[in-house]
């Protein structure tokens, strides 16, 4: 281990424990109150669905790569609410520029958690560039998200979730996960997903000062 690895957050992809997406999703949800969660396309939102279908969850039934922008929009609309984005490594690779947009936006209430299984699991497990060592944490740091880290283990994950709930700045965390199948399958009913989410997040009546207040 190099000297630099003594500092917090300096682990690389090869240094961290391989965890399980279903278990981490359940751990996340167990810590939440009224935070919004955007579940990215595929197995990511399947596991979010399997974790209990909170009304503050949104499930991306398509639009690969757009979980981060969608979460950024929610964060901009509701700065008093912490917003979690769950996204797969392959999906994030489709929209890397969005990390720069998050950094430029100045939001303090957005946390992006990426599941890196090194593959496009839902289409048959074809390798993603991450399998060759592409480091999404390094990319997030390079995009301007200083608080970017590899998830060392499950306890570290819990700490990161707790910190993200405090809305102290945009956070990016990447966990290596195994290739076990998701714990459930989302019911594909966009109208129901949307209405539950909007109702759960419904802000004060239109035109009140709270709606106009934006940014940190």
């Amino acid at each position: 281990m190099s000297g630099a690895a003594l500092f917090s957050g300096s682990e690389g992809r090869a240094d961290v424990e391989v965890l399980n997406r279903s278990e981490l999703t359940a751990r996340l949800v167990a810590q939440l109150d009224d935070e919004a969660v955007i579940g990215g396309i595929g197995n990511t939102h399947f596991d979010l669905w399997a974790s209990g279908q909170r009304p503050e969850n949104f499930y991306m039934l398509g639009s690969m790569g757009l979980a981060v922008p969608l979460g950024l929009g929610v964060a901009l609309a509701q700065p008093q609410r912490a917003v979690f984005v769950l996204e797969g490594d392959g999906s994030l690779l489709m929209q890397l520029g969005s990390l720069g947009t998050v950094a430029a936006s100045g939001v303090c209430n957005l946390a992006v958690f990426v599941w890196d299984n090194g593959s496009y699991q839902i289409t048959g497990g074809q390798p993603a560039h991450t399998a060759r060592g592409l480091d999404l944490v390094a990319m997030a740091r390079g995009a301007g998200l200083a608080d970017s880290t590899w998830v060392r283990d499950a306890e570290h994950f819990d700490e990161l979730v707790e910190r993200a709930r405090q809305r102290r700045g945009p956070m990016f965390a990447c966990a290596r996960v195994d290739d076990r199948p998701p714990a459930g399958v989302t019911e594909r009913d966009p109208a129901r997903i949307r209405n539950r989410f909007v109702d759960a997040l419904r802000p004060p009546a239109r035109g009140t000062p709270a709606r106009r207040r934006i940014g940190p």
Binding site: I38, P69, G71, G73, V74, L76, A77, F197, P203, I214
Partner: peptide, 8 residues
């Protein structure tokens, strides 16, 4: 789209 879901 996300902003609209959040009321903005």
């Amino acid at each position: 789209a996300g902003a609209y879901l959040g009321g903005r």
